[in-house]
């Protein structure tokens, strides 16, 4: 079973509704993944889900970039873990042998379309700058740029030129360890993150 800590900003919606509509479906999805810990931050607040089984810590992976997808953080990186976020076609993501203590992020498709390589495509190990164009998604005769969300190092491009991509499909895996460490050292570990003022703190973990 899973423990849960929940904090949320704004008090307009009842905590019951937040739990029912948000935390419950999330926790059920989480239960089906091989992940041991999951932290999600949205406009409504943040939720941390932890499975009691001991985790083999290696590194952490986040799936970001899709504006609808909240940052997800897991304490066990693997191809399986990525599949949980990337959906149907994300099983194309190869197994990444992450190093302990590093933070990997997937850059996901925000529109449905045909993926096109950048010219030239970034190479694994290449240093990437925040905002750099990594590739394109052609949709409705428009080229939508896929931009790097952060200063990072490219781990892998996981789609091929000309491949159709779904919404939310993983396109790149990047290593953002340095950027994250520099930008928000106080955010880690999630357990000690202080909720913003006015938050609702649950006295005990909800039954999930």
């Amino acid at each position: 079973m899973a423990d849960s800590k929940t904090s949320r900003s704004g008090g307009r919606q009842g905590i019951g509704r937040f739990l029912r509509e948000y935390v419950r479906p999330l926790s059920e999805a989480f239960a089906q993944t091989p992940l041991h810990e999951l932290r999600v931050t949205t406009e409504q607040g943040s939720v941390t889900l932890v499975k009691r089984a001991p985790a083999q810590l290696a590194a952490s992976i986040e799936a970001t970039s899709s504006p609808a997808t909240a940052p997800l953080e897991a304490t066990r990186p693997s191809a399986d873990g990525m599949r949980a976020f990337g959906g149907r076609t994300a099983s194309l993501v190869p197994a990444i042998n992450g190093e302990a203590g590093r933070t990997y992020v997937t850059v996901n498709a925000e529109v449905v379309g045909i993926f096109r390589n950048a010219a030239p495509p970034p190479a694994p190990g290449e240093a990437l700058q925040s905002g750099q164009v990594l590739g394109y998604i052609e949709a409705l005769r428009l080229r939508n740029e896929v931009r790097c969300p952060d200063d990072a190092t490219l781990v892998a491009q996981v789609v091929l030129d000309g491949q159709p991509v779904d919404y939310g499909e993983a396109l790149f895996v990047i290593d953002v360890t340095h950027a994250r460490a520099a930008a928000a050292p106080a955010e880690l570990p999630p357990d000690v993150q202080a909720p913003p003022a006015g938050d609702v703190q649950l006295a005990e973990p909800p039954r999930l």
Partner: peptide, 26 residues
């Protein structure tokens, strides 16, 4: 065949005309 066209909210998925048309083209 099936294509994911967006997040849960209908405004961004089942009412997302560009993603639906793009899926139709693909």
């Amino acid at each position: 065949e099936a294509y994911c066209i967006g997040p849960p909210q209908t405004a961004r998925s089942y009412l997302n005309i560009p993603n639906i048309i793009s899926a139709a083209e693909i």
